[in-house]
Design a binder for these strands. Structure first.
Lengths: 190, 190
DNA sequence: GTCTATAGTCCGATAGAC
DNA sequence: GTCTATCGGACTATAGAC
């Protein structure tokens, strides 16, 4: 079917998995080669720039697909949407967070293009909220602000409870968090 | 005055700075030694376990001191407190975020004790909010929820705008964010 | 306590056979 | 395209002089 290289994709997939587990610096090209089923020298055929070229390819392959999740749904109130979103995001975010948390210490090394690619994932999340909120609130500026609050709140939850692995207090699930948010912010629409 | 070792503290300080700049894995013990003004072999006198022992010492030295900032202030409403906090946190959080963001990919390597030490920093932030909110709201359970929302929201802002270095849209400052939060959540008290 | 010297390992990368 | 073989360098850690 496809004439695209299997090995190239195998390298990207293996590298993605290893970077998520160990971080970029802690992962050696030998580990990537082993996981991809080839020798380190073979990787230089597809990635002339070596390890950093692989990093670039991995970043370009990251995509979160936030928007399409509720493109076909309509909501009557802000509260309805936020409660519905609380359920949806509980499924999506753990994976999303796992995919990018290892990147934080590497930002200094990234090219403009790679950095912009990651940033756009966050902007997409904000814009996805903003578009919804504008349909449910009369004040466009307020919809923009609220979209930032919700984005920051959810990504902060991800930061604390996934990245930091904070589990030693009574459980406070992502779903619980979402519904709390809906309750407090939903009132602002009235 | 103090009979404590100067070199030991110099190693911790140098390591802290380098870890913040480059991350733990990317920092070599030679770099730490150079910055501390000694040789790598000397570090093994104070840190028998080598590099990972230094990491432990650095983590133990991290402290954010959130509470005392407004221990002597009283607020009449939730909104008053959140608006005041918006200003305070703008000064504190950039430094706080810089101090811990490099740690994220290292959590797998940490001991129970070191992990708990970091987690307690977040719990302290939440508890600091919760205590305030209980004095300003009638519902204790709601105060707890709101404290999580605010904590997650602020640490999410830090994640996005400091760690991710997202600056390519129109400015949305930490102070702006705080006041937006105060406006939306302050209404919940009425 | 701090040093010099060095052991031993792993790293990223390249040359060249097939 | 993928391999074997190998280079020079950087790394963590240790031994032992002072």
């Amino acid at each position: 079917m496809s004439t695209e290289s299997n090995l190239r994709q195998a390298i990207i997939d293996s590298a993605t998995e290893l970077f998520m587990k160990q971080g970029y610096t802690a992962t050696s090209i030998k580990q990537i080669a082993n996981a991809a089923g080839c020798k380190t020298s073979s990787m230089y055929y597809y990635f002339e720039g070596g390890k950093s070229d692989i990093l670039g390819a991995v970043i370009q392959s990251l995509s979160f697909d936030m928007k399409h999740v509720f493109d076909d749904r309509e909501f009557e109130t802000l509260s309805d949407f936020l409660h519905y979103y609380a359920e949806i995001v509980s499924e999506i975010m753990p994976r999303m967070n796992r995919r990018i948390s290892w990147l934080a210490p590497e930002f200094r090394k990234l090219s403009e293009k790679e950095l912009a690619h990651i940033q756009n994932q966050f902007l997409d999340m904000h814009d996805s909220f903003e578009q919804r909120f504008k349909a449910l609130m009369s004040d466009d500026a307020a919809a923009n602000e609220l979209a930032w609050i919700v984005t920051c709140a959810y990504l902060g939850y991800g930061n604390i409870f996934f990245t930091i692995q904070m589990r030693n207090r009574e459980d406070y699930s992502l779903t619980d968090f979402g519904h709390s948010l809906a309750r407090f912010l939903g009132a602002s629409n009235a």
